[in-house]
């Protein structure tokens, strides 16, 4: 079901394994599957973690915005939101966004509906049509020019994303990034360290990979949990950690 739906499905269905066992009483989620959704609040419990933004595949595309405008009329969005000034539904050209102004927020508002009267269009509109309407809505709201997050361009950027979006961020600090947890060691200058696993292993790429994937195998009793990563993600993460001098 997710094949044509990468961006949003990625959010709904990304399950993150985390097994941090804190040495000090810190509020950490219990072990198990952690779910990320589309965030509507800027308030979050615990240390700041990065927002995973959803990209509109047709964001800013002139042809898509034009089609989106037509669809905005045909699906009767205009009946409630007028030309964006609002009527039965709220204005879309002001800066008040009850359910978020991100492309993913608007997409899910259209598909899921909202409890105060926004109908759920899920099952009545295609994904492609929805993205075009999202592109149009963001264009009249002057949101299109906001820099959309670009996909990780190099290995180290991708690795940083793996770190910040995955379980590592739950326990470690890397200063200058949103990672700020004090459960595990500070990794800000990780690449300068000679050893890992509390001095038991030399800091090499091979040892580090083994340590991340199965720490109990290298140091029984350690509090570092196993982190299962796809090979691509693992290597990107290693690339990134090697830059932290």
């Amino acid at each position: 079901m997710c094949s044509r739906f990468h961006n949003v499905c990625g959010l709904f269905w990304t399950l993150i394994v985390c097994g941090c066992s804190p040495a000090v009483p810190v509020a950490v989620p219990p072990p198990g599957h952690l779910v990320q959704g589309i965030r509507q609040s800027t308030l979050q419990p615990g240390p700041p973690s990065p927002v995973r933004l959803v990209r509109n595949p047709v964001e800013g595309d002139a042809e898509a915005i034009e089609t989106g405008k037509r669809l905005f009329g045909q699906f009767n969005c205009a009946g409630c939101h007028a030309g964006g000034g609002g009527a039965i539904g709220p204005a879309l050209i002001d800066d008040q966004w009850i359910y978020g102004s991100g492309a993913g927020n608007i997409f899910s508002t259209i598909i899921e509906g909202r409890p105060q009267g926004m109908p759920a269009f899920g099952g009545r509109i295609s994904e492609d049509q929805t993205w075009r309407i999202v592109a149009f809505v963001r264009s009249i709201a002057n949101l299109t020019e906001d820099p959309a997050p670009s996909p990780p361009a190099s290995g180290t950027e991708k690795g940083k994303a793996v770190f910040l979006h995955g379980p590592c961020v739950m326990c470690h600090t890397i200063r200058g990034t949103p990672a700020g947890s004090r459960v595990g060691p500070d990794l800000t200058h990780f690449a300068s360290r000679k050893t890992i696993a509390a001095g038991t292993l030399p800091n090499t790429r091979g040892h580090l990979a083994g340590w991340i994937l199965n720490p109990q195998n290298l140091k029984p009793g350690t509090q570092m949990p196993a982190t299962l990563l796809e090979s691509q993600d693992l290597h990107a993460l290693l690339d990134y950690l090697e830059t932290l001098k």
């Binding site: 007028a82 964006g84 000034g85 609002g86 709220p90 204005a91 050209i93 002001d94 008040q96």
Partner: peptide, 10 residues
Amino acid sequence: GGLDPRDETS
């Protein structure tokens, strides 16, 4: 409804 006056058709 807190509507936006810039859109006269609201």
